[in-house]
């Protein structure tokens, strides 16, 4: 099984947007390596013909009618929502400059 290196932790931290300190990188590398080693045990069971289960519940086709805000729908108050934002301006959420593009 692959062991988790410090570089790998740094990559995982980037993907998950965590600005980890150097000390954390070292600390988590050791711990994640130990945990990944332990959870890798799932590979011990023979599962060649076993389908995966993402949900224990046997439901399909749960649909909602295309009806605007039926009774029981939480209605938000814009002023209240924006008041909870770290910053707002012009009835919009104000966010720092965006670098990347998608």
């Amino acid at each position: 099984m692959p062991s988790i290196t410090r570089e790998e932790v740094a990559h995982l931290a980037r993907l998950s947007r965590l600005d980890l300190s150097d000390a954390e990188l070292d600390h988590f590398a050791g711990q994640l390596d130990q945990i990944v080693g332990a959870v890798a045990r799932v590979g011990e069971l023979p599962t060649a013909d076993v389908p995966p289960t993402s949900h224990a519940q046997p439901l399909t086709n749960v649909f909602r009618a295309d009806v605007v805000r039926p009774a029981g729908t939480p209605i938000l108050d814009r002023a209240e929502v924006l008041a909870q934002a770290p910053a707002a301006e012009d009835d919009r959420f104000r966010v720092p400059r965006i670098l990347g593009e998608e």
Binding site: R64, V67, V68, R78, D90, D91, F93
Partner: peptide
């Protein structure tokens, strides 16, 4: 979600949790 989709509505008025 059941929010409306009207084009050009006032900002952040067609939102829910």
């Amino acid at each position: 979600c059941s929010c409306p989709t009207v084009f050009g509505a006032e900002p952040n008025t067609q939102i829910c949790p």
